[in-house]
């Protein structure tokens, strides 16, 4: 028996919008820890890891570990039927091949049940090793989204370089090239507007902008984004999901042939 009640249902709506472009089908795993997902895109270039901790739910009942295979486009169709202020409850019985999404309006005057068929998905779970990152950049998520969007109109790849001068995003294409430098800036009115650069050593990595742009679909979830870089490792682009968890996108770098 599984029953997860999320008062801030809009978070789940935003989570689906954030990952459905990257991943088609995925297993949602429920355990005492929380509600999680790990999945790669079809080319195995990017990986998304979602965690919504059990403490973040108003009610969290998960009698035994459960893995539920879902088509994310179909989940998104279901969740789009929930109002932004609705409370969303996920329910599944042991051994059932369906999951039920229940939507309650804030004043309880409308209650809807949407039942969705589950599917069998063969997915391999990857171990993500703990890493020491050479540089960690925290910046406004809207600024990062703007940079990725702007650069993708010039080129296909972005070089992200962190030095003590700041973080530089560069691209080049047929029509020319572009460089955007963001310096550390902590003298802002609100903490979420700050750009904070923690650098152990300079790092420079090249990534496909198409994936970066896809990650920025998570922008509505959080005012800030954290980008962790180490040479020879996938970049981690992390968006917090309120105070209950995160979405982490891992993207493999483009490397010298």
């Amino acid at each position: 028996m599984l029953e997860l009640r999320l008062v801030q249902g809009s978070l789940l709506k935003k989570v689906l919008e954030a990952i459905k472009e990257l991943v088609t089908d995925a297993n949602f795993d429920c355990s005492a820890t929380g509600f999680s997902l790990q999945a790669m895109d079809s080319s195995h270039v990017a990986l998304v890891a979602l965690l919504l901790r059990s403490e973040g739910f108003e009610h969290y009942r998960c009698d035994r570990n459960l893995s539920m295979g879902m088509n994310l486009n179909n989940v998104s169709k279901m969740l789009r039927c929930a109002g932004n202020d609705d409370i969303i409850t996920l329910k599944a019985d042991d051994g059932s091949d369906t999951v039920t999404f229940m939507f309650e309006s804030p004043n309880q005057d409308k209650i809807a049940d949407f039942e969705m068929k589950l599917m069998d998905i063969d997915s391999e779970h990857l171990g993500i090793p703990e890493a020491e990152y050479h540089a960690i950049v925290k910046m406004p998520s809207a600024e990062f989204a703007r940079i990725c969007k702007d650069l993708s109109s010039i080129g296909d790849t972005v070089v992200i370089s962190v030095t003590k001068e700041g973080v530089k995003f560069s691209t080049r294409g047929d029509i020319g090239n572009a460089n955007i430098v963001c310096r550390q800036n902590t003298t802002v009115d609100k903490p979420e507007e700050a750009t904070i650069i923690e650098m152990q050593e300079p790092v420079s990595l090249t990534f496909a902008l198409r994936y970066m742009n896809s990650f920025t679909k998570a922008t509505p979830l959080s005012n800030t984004v954290t980008i962790s870089l180490s040479s020879e490792l996938p970049v981690v682009v992390e968006y917090k999901v309120a105070d209950m968890g995160y979405i982490r996108f891992y993207l493999a770098p483009k490397i010298e042939d």
Partner: peptide, 14 residues
């Protein structure tokens, strides 16, 4: 020329 690497070459099943 740079080539796109895959996540599976950094993270292994487990």
């Amino acid at each position: 020329v740079r080539k796109q690497s895959q996540i599976t070459s950094f993270f292994t099943p487990g």
